[in-house]
Lab assay of single mutants.
Amino acid sequence: GKKITDLRVIDLKSELKRRNLDITGVKTVLISRLKQAIEEEGGDPDNIEL
């Protein structure tokens, strides 16, 4: 897996889109939004599978 902070903006957006989440904002905003979603799913933001 990869750390969420290692993802490119395009990867962050595709992961957010897959979860029907907002894809607007700067990279730090996208990271925190995706991180929260992954944690709510019970996942580990430091080890995500794309």
Score class of each variant (00 low, 15 high):
Ile23Met: 15
Leu21His: 08
Arg19Cys: 00
Pro45His: 05
Leu34His: 03
Thr28Asn: 15
Asp6Val: 03
Ile38Leu: 14
Glu15Arg: 00
Leu50Pro: 14
Leu30Met: 12
Asn20Val: 02
Lys2Glu: 06
Leu16His: 04
Asp44Val: 05
Asn20Leu: 08
Pro45Glu: 07
Leu7Lys: 05
Leu34Trp: 00
Arg8Ser: 14
Ile4Phe: 06
Pro45Lys: 06
Lys27His: 06
Lys17Leu: 05
Glu15Asn: 01
Lys35Ala: 14
Leu7Val: 01
Leu12Ile: 11
Ile10Gln: 06
Ile4Leu: 11
Ile48His: 09
Ser14Gln: 07
Glu41His: 03
Arg8Glu: 09
Gln36Cys: 09
Glu49Asp: 12
Arg19Tyr: 01
Ile4Gln: 03
Thr5Asn: 13
Lys3Gln: 07
Glu49Gly: 09
Lys3His: 07
Asp6Asn: 12
Val26Pro: 14
Thr24Ile: 02
Lys2Ala: 07
Ile10Asn: 03
Asp46Pro: 04
Lys2Thr: 09
Thr28Val: 13
Asp11Met: 12
Glu40Gly: 14
Ser32Lys: 11
Lys13Tyr: 09
Val29Leu: 11
Ile4Glu: 03
Thr5Leu: 09
Leu50Arg: 10
Ile38Val: 14
Ile23Thr: 07
Ile38Gly: 00
Asp46Leu: 11
Thr24Ser: 15
Asn20Ala: 07
Leu16Trp: 00
Asp44Ile: 06
Ser32Tyr: 06
Leu16Val: 02
Glu41Tyr: 02
Asn47Ser: 10
Glu41Arg: 03
Asn20Arg: 11
Arg19Val: 00
Gly42Glu: 06
Lys27Tyr: 14
Thr24Pro: 01
Glu15Phe: 02
Val29Glu: 14
Asp22Lys: 07
Asp6Arg: 07
Lys2Gln: 09
Val29Lys: 14
Asn47Thr: 08
Arg8Asp: 15
Ile31Cys: 11
Thr24Trp: 07
Ile10Phe: 05
Glu39Leu: 13
Asp11Ala: 02
Asn47Val: 10
Arg8Phe: 08
Val29His: 07
Arg18Val: 07
Glu40Phe: 12
Arg19Asp: 02
Ile48Gln: 14
Arg33Cys: 00
Ile4Gly: 03
Ile38Thr: 01
Leu34Gln: 00
Glu41Asp: 09
Leu16Gly: 01
Lys27Ile: 04
Gly43Leu: 12
Lys35Arg: 15
Thr5Gln: 13
Thr5Pro: 06
Thr24Gly: 08
Arg19Lys: 07
Gly42Ile: 01
Arg8Lys: 06
Ser14Gly: 12
Gln36Asn: 13
Glu39Tyr: 07
Asp46Ser: 11
Lys2Ser: 08
Thr24Arg: 15
Gly1Asp: 13
Ile23Arg: 09
Asn20Asp: 09
Leu50Cys: 12
Val9Ser: 05
Arg33Ser: 04
Asp46Asn: 15
Glu49Thr: 12
Glu15Asp: 00
Glu15Gly: 00
Asp11Ser: 01
Val29Ser: 11
Val29Arg: 09
Glu39Cys: 09
Ser14Val: 14
Lys27Trp: 07
Asp22Trp: 02
Thr28Cys: 15
Leu7Thr: 03
Thr28Leu: 12
Gly42Arg: 08
Lys3Asp: 10
Leu21Ala: 04
Glu41Met: 03
Glu15Trp: 00
Ile48Glu: 08
Asp22Val: 05
Ser14Asp: 15
Leu21Cys: 05
Gly43Lys: 10
Arg33Gln: 01
Leu7Cys: 11
Leu12Ser: 01
Lys17Glu: 14
Glu39Gln: 02
Asp22Phe: 00
Lys3Val: 06
Ser32Asn: 09
Ile31Val: 12
Gly42Trp: 02
Leu16Glu: 03
Leu21Thr: 02
Thr5Val: 13
Ser32Arg: 13
Ile10Ala: 15
Leu12Asp: 02
Asp6Thr: 10
Arg33Met: 04
Asp6Phe: 04
Glu39Ile: 15
Gly43Met: 11
Lys3Ala: 10
Ile23Asn: 02
Val26Cys: 15
Asp44Phe: 04
Lys3Thr: 06
Leu30Val: 03
Ile48Val: 13
Ser32Thr: 14
Val29Ile: 15
Ile23Asp: 05
Lys35Cys: 08
Arg19Trp: 00
Thr5Asp: 12
Lys2Asn: 07
Asp22Ala: 09
Lys3Trp: 00
Thr24Cys: 15
Ser32Asp: 11
Ile10Arg: 14
Val29Cys: 13
Gln36Glu: 08
Leu7Ala: 06
Ile4Tyr: 03
Val29Phe: 05
Ser32Met: 15
Ile10Glu: 12
Leu21Lys: 10
Val9Ile: 14
Val26His: 15
Thr28Phe: 06
Lys13Asp: 01
Lys35Asn: 07
Ile48Phe: 06
Leu16Phe: 00
Lys35Ser: 11
Asp44Tyr: 05
Leu50Phe: 10
Glu49Ile: 14
Val9Trp: 05
Pro45Ala: 08
Lys2His: 14
Arg19Gln: 03
Gly42Tyr: 03
Lys27Glu: 12
Leu12Arg: 00
Arg33Val: 01
Glu41Thr: 07
Ile48Cys: 15
Leu50Tyr: 01
Lys13Thr: 11
Asn47Gly: 06
Gly1Cys: 06
Asp44Arg: 07
Asn20Glu: 10
